[in-house]
């Protein structure tokens, strides 16, 4: 069990800043996540999910990972795709009573059939990320926070060979660039299905936007 985040951050504020970071960037970022510091019952520092913004790959991305998944993508067979859909349907059932479902309500006939759409690798990686946390400097986000130095990993080979399960997992799901930028309150992680070179001004912007007093 986690204690309250330190300090408690407004999720609307996080969402606005994540969205601004992704939508305002010249590069095509697939998602942004803010990993927020907290401490567990034993006093260990934990980076846990603060909030995230999912944009998805570029619309003109021709790679299979952009398209709805088929058997050639990530060796995903039909059963695995059905499992992803089932998990999303179950999660939808879990959260919709509490948070409503305005998208379905506004569009007649939309219903829950839209939950049956193919779940792409990038979408799945983002959803799985919500269940993750990093204790005492583990993982790429934890390393960035503990060293207070941004980590910018470009290319499938570097992600695959990076000594971190999250980087390897990202690569397996089609991420080509993973960036973790530390702030005093946590870590901003950006991921893209493109190879994006290091960008000093983006790192500064992320650090500034996610430094809370």
């Amino acid at each position: 069990p986690l204690t309250a985040p330190l300090p408690s951050l407004n999720q609307d504020t996080l969402q606005q800043r994540l969205q601004a970071l992704v939508e305002g960037a010249a590069e095509s970022w697939t998602y942004a996540i803010f990993w927020q510091t907290s401490s567990d019952a034993e006093g260990s520092m934990v980076l846990g999910w603060g909030d995230g913004y999912y944009k998805g790959p570029r619309d003109d991305d021709p790679r299979p990972s952009k398209r709805p998944l088929d058997a050639n993508s990530h060796n995903l067979d039909g059963a695995d795709q059905e499992l992803r859909k089932k998990v999303l349907r179950d999660l939808h059932a879990l959260v919709s009573p509490e948070f409503g479902d305005s998208a379905a309500a506004e569009i007649p006939g939309a219903g829950d059939a839209t939950m049956d759409g193919e779940v792409t690798d990038a979408e799945w990686f983002y959803v799985v990320s919500m269940m993750q946390s990093f204790v005492n400097g583990s993982g790429v986000p934890g390393q960035a926070f503990f060293t207070a130095v941004p980590i910018w990993i470009i290319g499938a080979e570097r992600l695959q060979s990076y000594n971190c399960d999250r980087a390897r997992q990202a690569q397996q799901f089609g991420i080509q660039t993973m960036v973790c930028i530390p702030s005093p309150n946590g870590v901003v992680e950006l991921g893209s299905m493109d190879q994006i070179p290091q960008n000093w001004s983006l790192m500064q912007q992320a650090k500034t936007s996610f430094t809370f007093t």
Partner: peptide
């Protein structure tokens, strides 16, 4: 179904709603 901490439910709801919009508008 994985356990979803309360703080993450809002993120999940937002993601699922936007995903539904993307599918509908395709």
């Amino acid at each position: 179904v994985p356990r979803v901490p309360q703080a993450r439910k809002a993120s999940l709801a937002r993601f699922l709603e936007k995903r539904k919009e993307r599918i509908i508008t395709k």
